[in-house]
Amino acid sequence: MSGKDLNLKSKNNMKLWNINFISLLGINVLTFMAFYLVYPILSKYAINLGASLSMAGVIVGLFSITALIIGPFGGILTDKTNKKYVMEIGTLINGIATLGYSLAPNIGVIIFFRILHGASFSITSATSVAWATEFIPKDRIGEGIGYLGISQIIATAFGPEIGIEGANRFGISKTFMVAAVLIIVASFCMNFLPNTNNTPKKNTETKKHTIKLKEIIAFEILPLSFIGGLFFMGNGLVTSFLVLMGDKRNIRGVGIYFIVNALFLIFTRPISGKIYDKKGLSMVLYPALLFSIAEALFLGHANALWMIILAAIFKAFGQGFAQPALQAECFNKMGSEKRGLASSTFFIGANVGQGVGPLIGGGIASSLGYTWLFNISALMLLCGILFYAIYKRKKDI
């Protein structure tokens, strides 16, 4: 299938399960598998090199803070340049940064590669979803994004547990090397996908173009972005501190959280997209916020493995329901010509949440303990319900 066959005029006649969409799912499995191999063991690696618990949280959070700064420019790159080339180069840099972790002799070097990783990953995150929508029928965007998330689900199911087990058996550095290889292979595989190149034609006039703020941030969908950020905040807390919390409370086998969560996500992700396409955002978002509140409370008060498992199920019906619906809403509000902008704006909230979570969470966990850490997360999600109700009421007036 050529790039010309995938233009906007033919999208309604396109099948969802086309070869390019399926290939992209496989590539996403590799990149997210590598991501989740690294995430749950990075804080422990930093502590082994002499970092305090608070500093380990800062190092993990630097990824998303960097992504917050660089990410919005990813929307410009996506909409005004070639999506395929942006993805190939950005993914390759991801691999180099991940390899850098394994070679880091001290905290300063880890910080450097963490910043590089955050910058490149933020651009590829914005570009990948926008690029994927070119292989999805226009009237099935919500469903397609839901299925796209399954590639991340598969990685979530096995990545953290493999990363933790690999670090215990072979060492953290070697685990980072394996993750880097997976990312570089993913970058190579992207070369076989068609180059749709649906970018605006360049203006032949030699007029200077000043980048405006509205080209970097889509303010009309910013409230949706920050609601999404609440879910990512909880995600950042879990991936950064669940292993450490399990060690402190003598709860063995906490890695099963990721497997259980992923298995249930396989069900919730596609269902979420279908409900959104037929019923709208509110039918998905309110239940998702309530489920995420329950997840945070169960984690905060967990003293046995069954509570960790139940929290994982609640998370699948929380973030698993909300994320594809919120992303689809952002794409539909911005239109096909600004999907890069929509994607990068959505990830502003994601980066704020996933960055601020570990950044502040390390301090809260050190001073108040893990119970208060997750109680505060539940309170933030409760505020999210009130915020969305106010937002929706203003939109309906």
Score class of each variant (00 low, 15 high):
S122I: 10
S122N: 06
I123V: 15
I123W: 04
T124Y: 00
T124R: 00
T124Q: 01
S125W: 07
S125I: 10
A126G: 15
A126E: 06
T127F: 09
T127H: 07
T127A: 15
V129A: 15
V129S: 15
A130S: 14
A130G: 14
A130L: 12
W131A: 14
A132I: 12
E134W: 07
I136W: 02
P137Q: 07
P137G: 07
P137L: 05
K138M: 04
K138N: 08
K138Q: 08
D139M: 04
D139Y: 07
R140E: 14
I141T: 15
I141K: 07
G142D: 09
G142A: 13
G142P: 11
G142I: 09
E143H: 12
E143D: 05
G144Q: 10
I145C: 04
G146D: 11
Y147W: 13
Y147N: 11
Y147M: 13
L148K: 09
G149Q: 08
I150L: 14
I150P: 04
S151H: 12
S151L: 13
S151Q: 10
S151T: 11
Q152E: 12
Q152I: 12
Q152V: 14
I153E: 14
I153R: 07
I153W: 06
I153F: 13
I154W: 01
I154A: 08
I154T: 10
A155R: 03
T156E: 15
A157F: 07
A157L: 13
A157W: 03
A157C: 11
G159T: 02
G159P: 02
G159V: 01
P160I: 05
E161M: 14
E161D: 06
E161W: 03
I162Q: 01
G163N: 03
I164E: 00
I164P: 02
I164V: 13
I164T: 08
G166F: 04
G166N: 02
G166K: 01
A167E: 00
R169H: 05
R169K: 11
R169I: 09
R169M: 06
R169A: 05
F170M: 10
G171I: 12
G171T: 13
G171D: 11
G171M: 10
I172S: 05
S173M: 11
S173R: 14
K174N: 14
K174V: 03
K174Q: 14
T175G: 06
F176W: 09
F176R: 06
M177W: 01
M177D: 08
M177H: 06
V178R: 03
V178F: 10
V178N: 04
A179V: 02
A180P: 05
A180M: 09
A180L: 06
V181H: 01
L182F: 13
L182T: 02
L182M: 15
I183K: 00
I183P: 00
I183E: 01
V185C: 00
